[in-house]
Design a protein around this nucleic acid. Structure first.
Length: 520
RNA sequence: GGCGUCGUAGCCAAGUGGCUAAGGCAGUGGAUUGCAAAUCCACCACUCGUGGGUUCGACUCCCACCGACGCCUCCA
């Protein structure tokens, strides 16, 4: 895995053998989340799934920052108490995580629930001489930390900025706040330095220590957090404990908003006039200050699976341009997998999404999967074993989901080819052996899909073969009528039905043993 | 200005100091189909921003340049 601290890939060696402690910086809940906030959670959710799959016991913490200057300002503006705003926005965040299949988080501590820890941590830093109090504020003394700047590769004296609003109270402009004294009317907590609230970075140091220990394995977040947030966290914790805070720092790339229409195409830029190019380059960082939001609606429209697949198609450290075209493409690609799954269910009469039955259950770990396929004696299964191995190798190389996904496509194609070659669409050609091979191959797709958090449940409005519900009833009626017309070679009528449905974005597929439909 | 990232086909996107540079979307031809859709097969970058250099050999390493982008105490 790539380590931001050393700027190179390193083998994973955990603090405790077989265990991984992982911390991801979560949101400051002062406004609704936007799509960019979901990149880290989706990636780390996938990383946890993969580590568990690989045999580790993983403890994953995502914090909620529910006290902060922006929260105070936003709550005041809306005329509601800060905790109410925080709760509202936390609910929004959690709903979005759920919709994107981020289900692996073990702890979500809130800053306001950890005030004692935070205050204790600051006290320790003062006692050790790494921090100082001044008129109710407490600052970290950067000059006391010789290693300050190692994560972001900056030297402390090159960082002399303005010092912010509290500059007058600081010994040096590079010092940062651990505790901020409360102004009248602000939410505050009692401390040895008077009423106030924690600075931005200290909560992560305090909460990660409580839940993961003084040195833990993986700390993640967006690239934009490297400085100052993670640099400062690291400094606080290392100075406080005299040992490294984190073994591996992982940072995901940031997302950029793509304007409607084409984005970033070389030819577009070259041909664009200056006026047009400024319009065409209307892409940029997604931020709440630019009004990004409406994530719940976006997920509802696009489906969580599609967004998740879109995010996992590329490498986690690269910039992702988020736009309708990319989502559309991801959707096209994903639907081919869903068609294969439906095909399997139709041929086998089994529920791909059901778990538990011995033959259907997927390998939950690498070792299980190895064992299952080592008994394979069929050409297709040998192919599955090869593709599965390749998938694992790619995930082993810094969680390269973008490369690993390509194996999923190969798996899909191989299985479809098998079904075609064996004529499994025709019930007369099905044998228990061919169905068994099909079933085992599909379980490899299920196994690897589960690592990415994909194919875990049936997608909405994916169509069907005519059963249940009003729409299904109507569809099966139309399909029956059309079948009669086709039997009579009345193609004018049958095509009229099909074309009419196409106008409603419903596509029919005539198979050997009946007709299925799909809504796009 | 300081620190850092990126530039691979029409588009998205992996990747390696030396086998035919993954995969996807779009597209083209074929099998299949009453016609379609879906699926399968085949084709689709003698080339990896530009110019140098190192090397027996570079897309991969180094330098310069051009272009895009991030951080520099609000930010996932």
């Amino acid at each position: 895995m790539y380590n931001t601290l050393t700027r190179q890939k390193e083998p994973l060696q955990t603090v405790e053998p077989g265990r991984v402690g992982m911390y991801l910086c979560g949101p400051t809940v002062y406004a609704e989340a936007h799509i960019g906030h979901m990149v880290g959670p989706v990636i780390f959710d996938t990383i946890k799934r993969y580590l568990v799959y690989s045999g580790f016991e993983v403890n994953w913490v995502v914090n909620i920052t529910d006290v902060d200057d922006k929260l105070i300002a936003s709550a005041k503006k809306r005329g509601i108490p800060m905790p109410q705003l925080a709760t509202e926005m936390t609910m929004d965040y959690l709903a979005n995580l759920q919709a994107l299949g981020v289900t692996q988080i073990d702890h979500m501590p809130r800053a306001t629930d950890n005030m004692d820890e935070i205050i204790a941590f600051i006290s320790e830093l003062i006692e050790l001489g790494f921090a100082y109090e001044n008129e109710g504020d407490v600052f970290f003394d950067v000059s006391r930390d010789a290693d300050y700047g190692q994560l972001s590769n900056r030297s402390a004296d090159s960082q002399l900025g303005e010092g912010g609003g509290a500059a007058a109270k600081k010994r040096s402009a590079g010092d940062f706040a651990l505790w901020k004294s409360a102004k009248a009317g602000e939410p505050s907590w009692n401390s040895p330095w008077g009423n106030g609230r924690p600075g931005w970075h200290i909560e992560c140091s305090a909460m990660s220590r409580r839940l993961l220990g003084k040195t833990f394995d993986i700390h993640g977040g967006g690239l934009d957090l490297i400085f100052p947030h993670h640099e400062n966290e690291l400094a606080q914790s290392r100075c406080c404990h005299g040992q490294p805070m984190v073994r591996y720092w992982m940072h995901n790339g940031l997302m950029r908003a793509g304007a409607a229409g084409k984005v970033g195409g070389k030819s577009d830029r070259e041909q664009a006039t200056p006026a047009e190019s400024s319009e065409a380059s209307d892409v940029g960082k997604i931020s709440r200050s630019k009004g990004a939001g409406g994530l719940a609606k976006l997920i509802e429209e696009q489906t969580g699976d599609r967004i998740r697949f879109f995010l996992l198609r590329s490498h986690y450290r690269s910039t992702i341009v988020f736009g309708p075209e990319g989502l559309e493409e991801a959707g096209q690609a994903l639907s081919a997998f869903y068609r294969l799954i439906q095909r399997f269910e139709r041929l086998s009469g089994e529920d791909f999404y059901a778990r538990g039955e011995s033959e259907l259950s997927y390998a939950k770990t690498r070792r299980d999967g190895d064992a299952a396929l080592s008994r394979a004696n069929h050409g297709l299964l040998a192919e599955m074993a090869r593709l599965r191995k390749s998938f694992i190798e790619k995930m082993d190389d810094d969680f390269n989901t973008g490369a690993a996904v390509s194996e999923l496509f190969e798996i899909s194609r191989s299985i479809n080819r098998f079904i075609d070659q064996e004529s499994l669409e025709d019930s007369k050609s099905r044998t228990s052996e061919s169905l068994s091979v099909l079933r085992s191959s599909m379980s490899v797709l299920r196994e690897l899909g589960a690592i990415l958090g994909l194919f875990l449940k049936e997608p909405k409005s994916s169509g069907g073969d005519g059963n249940a519900s009003t729409v299904d009833g109507l569809m099966s009626l139309l399909i029956d009528l059309r079948a009669k017309a086709r039997a009579n070679k009345d193609f004018a009528t049958s095509d009229a039905i099909r074309d009419g449905l196409a106008g409603l974005k419903i596509t029919l597929q005539d198979l050997k043993e009946g007709t299925t439909w799909e809504q796009s």
